[in-house]
Amino acid sequence: MAFSYCKVFGKDKVIFATKEDHSTPSTIELPAPEPPQGLITKDGNINWSCPCLGGMATGPCGVDFRDAFSCFHYSEAEPKGSDCYEAFRKMQDCFQQYPTVYNKSNGGDDDDDALGDVMNSDSNTNIKDVDELTGGAGAAAAAAATDTHITTTNAVSKVE
């Protein structure tokens, strides 16, 4: 029954489009959107501005976090990150000084704490979240974050 039709209210035009009308592909071609920068830049460095870090790099333990994460990222030891025990312990110690800042993920999973969530939980859903947060390049970030997760848990278990 339905056909697409138009209405005009002065300067404002309105088109009512049927599903059928819109089922053909658009003739407009757009350039592919530039993928937002992920956690790791093209030249292999860490992008501390990545929203996927969820404020980890800017918090009160930001410096310790950077040390630990950089150590891990650039580690050539086998297994990767096994030479970062000291840095991770320092980071964990710092975390414990700020329980309200770094334990938030227990209750609410703030998007702010995307990485914190990834690091503290085992569910895959959070990793997906990170993926969405960072768009196309998010996969790398998510992968990196998962790695961190494993390392952190390792580090934690070592500490304990």
């Binding site: 339905a2 300067k11 404002d12 035009k13 489009a17 049927t18 599903k19």
Partner: peptide, 13 residues
């Protein structure tokens, strides 16, 4: 205040 063109969906039958 700008001229606009709105495209709205008619739900199919």
């Amino acid at each position: 205040s700008l001229p606009t063109v709105g495209v709205f969906a008619i739900p199919s039958n």
